[in-house]
Simulated scan of single mutants.
Amino acid sequence: MKGKFIVVEGLEGAGKSSVIRLIRETLAAHDIQSISTREPGGTPMAESIRDCVKHNWEEEVAVETELLLMYAARLQLLNNTIKPTLEKNVWVVGDRHDLSTQAYQGGGRGVSEDVLASLRKMTLKDFSPDLIIYMDVEPEVGLKRARGRGELDRIEQAGMEFFKRTRQRYLELTADNPAIVRVDANQEMSWVHNKVKNVLLRYLN
């Protein structure tokens, strides 16, 4: 038997980290072993790429550079952690995956779908998550929460219009996909957690 790959998506401040903890606790209560990962990151090399992506460089970072770094980190994580773990019948709960690139670099940065599709085909081939939980939050709400955590990184400083474009693309991508469940993350976290837990329990049953 193979494990399942569950991904939690959403803008900064959507509450992904606490939802991932909830998912893993729920899986453990059902005697399902799991690990958590994050993107970009999740392996030593991918974490170094994450630092490179997030750093506030004094030079301009080209959109294409950011995009290629994202896929480089993703491929390292996929080949070295996600796939081997799933083969051991251990579930993987991911903080972001390819949907983030489609929303952030596609919607936010304006990278064409043809370019994104080509990179997906080269790196991911036919691999995709078993379940995606998209935490939908208004950019104003999410960024306010993010600022409350401390200093914003380079991507978090991209500006409100960037995040509005990113959210719009998320909404388009999640509209009619049966593998994606949309959760209103503008609500109180107790409500959000209850909603996510119910989604997961239905999936397990």
Rank of each mutant, 00 (worst) to 15 (best):
R24A: 01
R149D: 01
R167T: 02
N56K: 15
N89I: 04
L201F: 06
L131A: 09
K16Q: 01
K125F: 03
I20M: 14
R154G: 00
I35Y: 09
G107I: 05
V93K: 00
N205R: 05
V181S: 11
I23S: 01
V192Y: 14
V141L: 04
R24K: 06
L78R: 13
G15P: 04
L201K: 09
A158S: 15
Q157I: 01
H55M: 04
G13Y: 04
M70K: 14
T43F: 10
H97Y: 14
N194F: 05
R154N: 10
R96S: 02
S100A: 15
D51W: 07
V8W: 07
G107F: 03
T43N: 06
K121L: 10
I155V: 13
V93G: 01
I32N: 04
D176N: 15
R167G: 01
R96Q: 02
H30L: 05
W191Y: 12
E47Q: 13
A185K: 01
N56E: 11
E156Y: 09
W57M: 02
A158D: 08
Q76L: 05
T174W: 02
R145F: 03
K144E: 11
D130K: 02
V115K: 15
Y170G: 01
F127Y: 05
N177R: 11
G42Q: 12
E12G: 10
E172T: 08
A146K: 12
R145L: 00
E188N: 13
P139W: 11
E138Y: 07
A117T: 15
K83L: 15
I155T: 11
M45Y: 11
D130F: 04
E188I: 03
G106I: 11
K121Y: 08
Y104F: 15
V141K: 12
E60V: 09
L201C: 00
L99I: 10
A28E: 10
K88F: 10
E156H: 11
T43P: 01
E66C: 02
R147P: 00
L143G: 03
V19T: 04
I23Q: 01
G110A: 02
T26A: 08
D130N: 08
T43Y: 11
D153I: 03
H30Y: 13
W57A: 10
N79P: 00
I35N: 07
S34V: 04
